[in-house]
Simulated scan of single mutants.
Amino acid sequence: MTDVVELALPFRGTWRVGNSPARRVPSHGTHLFATTYAIDFVAVRDGRSASVRDWRTALGTEPPDRFVGFGVPVLAPAPGRVVAVHDGESDHEARRSPSALVGYALTQAARARGGAGALAGNHVIVELDLGRDGVRAFVVLAHLRAGSPVVAAGDRVVTGQQVGACGNSGNSTQPHVHVQAMDGIDPFSAHGLPIVFTAFRTWSRRRGAPVVVDRGVPGEADVVEPV
Rank of each mutant, 00 (worst) to 15 (best):
V83M: 04
S51E: 12
V5H: 06
T107E: 12
R215T: 00
S20A: 03
E62Q: 15
T173Y: 14
G208C: 06
G115S: 10
T14N: 10
F200S: 06
V151P: 01
G121L: 09
A116R: 14
A146V: 05
P10Y: 04
D129W: 08
R205P: 07
G154W: 11
F41P: 03
A50G: 07
R53M: 13
G60D: 14
V150A: 13
R207P: 00
D183A: 01
A190M: 07
V44M: 13
R145A: 15
G160F: 03
P77Q: 04
L119T: 06
R53G: 02
V157I: 12
V163K: 01
V83E: 01
R145P: 05
A152W: 02
S189I: 13
A8V: 00
D46V: 03
T107L: 13
E127H: 14
C166D: 04
H176R: 10
D155P: 01
I39G: 04
G170W: 05
E220T: 07
V126C: 01
L128W: 12
V157H: 03
D186E: 08
G117V: 04
P175T: 13
A94R: 06
S148P: 03
S27M: 02
H31Q: 06
A118H: 10
R201A: 14
P10Q: 05
V217F: 02
T36E: 05
G71A: 14
V139A: 13
T198P: 00
T2S: 14
T173M: 08
S172H: 09
A58S: 09
P226G: 04
G216N: 01
S204A: 11
G160W: 02
H176T: 12
C166Q: 09
G115K: 08
V82H: 05
I125Y: 01
A146P: 04
H86K: 13
I185N: 11
M182T: 09
T61P: 02
S49F: 10
Q162R: 15
G121E: 05
W55E: 08
Q161C: 03
A84R: 02
T30M: 07
S20E: 06
W203L: 13
F188H: 15
L9N: 01
A58R: 10
D186K: 15
Y37T: 09
R24E: 09
F188S: 14
T198G: 01
S97R: 10
E6T: 11
A142K: 11
G170S: 12
R156D: 11
R53K: 12
A76N: 00
D46F: 03
G103I: 00
G167P: 06
G167S: 10
A58N: 07
D46G: 09
A112C: 04
A120S: 13
R16A: 11
G18W: 08
T2I: 09
V211H: 15
V196K: 00
T173I: 10
R16I: 04
R156I: 04
P187Y: 06
A137Y: 01
S148Y: 02
A34E: 05
G208K: 08
H31I: 01
G184L: 05
V124N: 02
